[in-house]
Design a binder for these strands. Structure first.
Length: 356
DNA sequence: AACCCGGGGGG
DNA sequence: CCCCCAGGGTT
């Protein structure tokens, strides 16, 4: 098959079918960078509003580098994979400190930034600077696996190398930006994971998987992530107009987001059983007359690799115990100013509707 | 190489 | 409801 013919068809298809998106109207590497990080594991429809709000608040590298990380997290709240936001902030500081605030141009320098790997480096280098690096994302894996009927697993080291070299060999070096955009947009809109419309596909005469009837089976992946359950008992403790909050730390989900005092248990527990748990007693040590105002039954929060069964207890106290002093005491009306997970956010929203 | 990190959409 | 999606960092 003629490589130039493939890239020509893809680029022609792209010019006719591409979506008009703000980050496609710019050559500013900063805006392209932000869009690429947001678009990792995130669909355009979901990321578009986040992008617009983010770049309005942080229009350039320095404005992002100079703010507190909490401020960045607020603009990422609800988007998921929060390490992306932490790395984005760290990389902005890297650019100010090591590159005098100017976005680096070479692939090596771009790759040195936190949160930027092979894919994002190629995207920025080709979109902003027209450098000849092929972007290999999930769309590209799918398009190439089908076009060439390749059964090599895409989540192996060997597969990653093979597909990257194949994409690089197909790249139109005269228009690396157009070629990369075309390949990925084609995967996103035409060569979709489920039930692609091969009848109307401009490459259906060249697609080896279509000829062999394996379109739906490709690409092949080995990955099988175990879903482990966790049990979160959240204590929404309020007293004297203040709410207790803490910031999640350590190597765990939702790092650096805020939440209520949490007692995690190995299995589901009732309110009565929870009061026997050490973590609970440490918190309420010496206190009498705990007043549970409201209990929300277990909410199932499903992540790709975790399922969290959460119970929220709203507890009113006259005063905070000594053990509660280590928590932030936030005025009730300011709780909304803190970046929280979707789970906590949905609790707060549900509580709001029940109250009024 | 294996595992971890969120959340949304589609069948 | 269950199944699918997927780039980068860490271990």
């Amino acid at each position: 098959m003629d490589d130039r013919e493939i890239s020509g068809i893809l680029i022609h298809w792209y010019e006719k079918n591409k979506r008009e998106l703000p980050w496609r109207e710019t050559g500013d590497p900063y805006l392209i960078w932000i869009s690429e990080i947001i678009l990792q594991q995130t669909r355009v429809a979901q990321g578009l509003d986040y992008f617009n709000r983010f770049v309005q608040r942080f229009p350039d590298v320095r404005s992002l580098a100079e703010v507190d990380e909490d401020e960045v997290m607020k603009y990422w709240q609800g988007l998921g994979y929060y390490s992306r936001a932490r790395n984005l902030h760290a990389a902005a500081k890297q650019i100010v400190d090591s590159f005098d605030g100017v976005f680096p141009r070479t692939r090596e320098d771009i790759l040195s930034l936190k949160g930027i790997g092979d894919y994002t480096a190629a995207a920025i280098a080709s979109f902003a600077y027209q450098q000849p690096y092929a972007t290999v994302d999930g769309n590209v894996y799918r398009v190439l696996a089908r076009l060439f009927d390749l059964e090599m697993p895409i989540d192996s080291g060997e597969g990653k190398k093979y597909f990257t070299e194949l994409a690089q060999s197909l790249l139109d070096e005269r228009h690396p930006d157009l070629f990369n955009q075309a390949m990925m947009e084609f995967g996103a809109l035409q060569c979709v994971p489920k039930s692609p419309a091969c009848d109307s596909c401009p490459l259906n005469g060249k697609c080896l998987a279509l000829a062999s009837g394996r379109v739906e089976q490709l690409p092949v992946k080995n990955g099988k992530t175990m879903v482990k359950p966790r049990y979160f008992n959240y204590l929404h403790i309020r007293g004297q107009g203040k709410t207790l909050l803490s910031k999640r730390t350590g190597n765990d989900i939702w790092r650096n987001l805020y939440e209520f005092p949490l007692v995690e248990t190995a299995s589901p527990v009732s309110w009565g059983e929870l009061q026997q748990v050490a973590g609970f007693n440490t918190l309420f040590g010496g206190m009498t007359g705990i007043n549970v105002k409201r209990e929300f039954t277990a909410k199932k929060h499903v992540l790709s690799h975790r399922v969290i069964y959460a119970v929220f207890y709203e507890i009113l106290v006259d005063a905070f115990s000594p053990a509660m002093q280590k928590y932030l005491q936030v005025p009730d009306e300011e709780v909304g100013n803190y970046a929280v997970s979707r789970l906590v956010q949905s609790y707060l929203e549900k509580r709001e509707t029940l109250l009024f």
